[in-house]
Structures are given as structure tokens and as C-alpha cells.
Amino acid sequence: MNPLTATAVGKRYRSRWAVRDCSFTIPEGKVVALVGPNGAGKSTLLGMAAGIVRPTTGGLSAFGTPTAGRTHPDVSYLGQNRSLYHDLTVRELTRAVGSMNDRWSTDRVHEVLGLLTGVDHDAKVGTLSAGTRTQVAIAMALGRLPRLLLLDEPLSDLDPLARDETLRIIMTEVADRGTTVVMSSHLLTDLREVCDHILLVDEGRVQVDGDIEEVLARHRILVGPAADESSVEGTLVSATRTARQSTLLLREAAPTPKGWEGTEPDLESLVMGYLRASRERRR
């Protein structure tokens, strides 16, 4: 049973579609980068996966169970606004979240909090810095001993040290328990090094989905004369052209024709190519 499967899922807010007709599957044990520009639909997608946002069309299922209206017991979710009780101390919060769960490990929470620098257990959650609150929220998410961890912008308000600490905690979780992780970010560089699977969304639609190595291997960047593109075969994703030179991003490209230089793209140029393409479609 796959940790997460989306079937033609869509969400409309009033007249605007935040997510539209998205289908994908996330295999077990992957660390998935959910990337896309701000407003691409990442949070809505994660919210629907967590069961707190109701899809307008289609649906998502976690470990084979539809997620609408209820968070799957094996799924933990970190929302973008971190949703913690600010009037409780960290210790009380741990107790509170624990008492709302059937399966819960206070030891795991303490273990995670112990790895973080300077979390005072008797401090009110509201007095902690935004970064520390994020880390506390991640600790709570791990206390549920999840098999799928959904993290919405987990690194957005962290300084470099806290970012490293946090990634270490998440990666240790993957190493120890084989947890599947889906992390969103509007900054690819945040996730580049730690993810092995990419889900690129823009305009509410999935643009790229797959293992990073495989996705890169499927694409080519060709640089050649602007005058003659007829010899190039493959699905054109996007192109930048000057008077003399064309740079093309191709999917499933045929062998590089004469007069062109072909290389495998790196992840950044691949993502940029797709985002540029979806921008142009919108115009």
C-alpha cells in the first residue's frame, strides 16, 4: 500500500482552483520534495493529504484509506502556521498532544527535543521563537510515530543552524524508521540535498513527478543554432532563444543531433524550465 496516492484531486476556493486534477503516487520510504512557487497549491495539497482540507473533486488516500475529513493514524502533519497551543508550556503541550493520540511516544518527543539546542520545557510555547516553535511542532509530529510525515515549509523560518538540526532530525527518522517524508518548499535549494523524489507543482497542477535521478535522466538540455531546430526530436518543455543560439529543455529526447550540444540538466535548471513553461502557458 503506497503511503500517498492522489487521484484526479482538485480543490476550489470560491472561483479559484488551488489544486486541479492532480494524480500521483508516492512510494514507501521516499523523501519527497514538494516544490513550486508561492501559491502553487502545495499547502492545499498537503492539507488534503492530512485530511483537514476537503477536496472538491477526486481524492487522496493514505495507505489505501481515503483521507477526507480524518487524518490517517499513520500520518503526521506539520501545517504552515504550526498550530500549537501557545498558552501551554512545552511540557504541557507534550502531555496535551499525547493525550489526543492512541499511539504516542513521549520518549520520542523528548529524544527529539533533546537533540535541539535550547528548548526550555517549562517555557510557554508562545514565548518561543518561530524557529523553535517549528522544531517543537516537528517533535510533536514525530511523537505519533508516523509512517508518513507531511511537512509544510518545515525550514522556512529556521536559521542555518536550526535548519541543519531539523534536517538531521527528519533524516534520522527516515534512517531509523523508514518513514516516508513529503516536504514542501518554495526554495529548491532547501531540499536539493535531502530528497530523492520530486513533485513539482505549479498553477495547481503536477508538472514533474518521480525519482530525481530518473527524472533528470529522462531530460536533456540541448544548446545549438537558433536557425535550425528541425533536427531536434523529443518533447519540448521550454526554450530560451537568442538571435543565434537556442537552449532547449527536452523530455524523452532522441540522440543529440549534429551541431547541437547535449547535457543532462541539473535539478535547478529542470525546475526552472518547467516553471518558465507554465508561466508562458498562463500568459
Binding site: V31, M171, V194
Partner: peptide, 19 residues
């Protein structure tokens, strides 16, 4: 070093280490 030991030291994806 085990994947976990690598991860604790460098915050990389353990799947990558194993691969």
C-alpha cells in the same frame, strides 16, 4: 558508518547513503 551515523553527522538523506 551506518546510514543513521552518517545522517546524524551530516543531515543527508539516508536513502542516498544506502544507495
Amino acid at each position: 558508518p551506518s546510514a543513521r551515523e552518517v545522517v546524524e553527522a551530516t543531515a543527508v538523506n539516508p536513502n542516498t547513503v544506502l544507495k
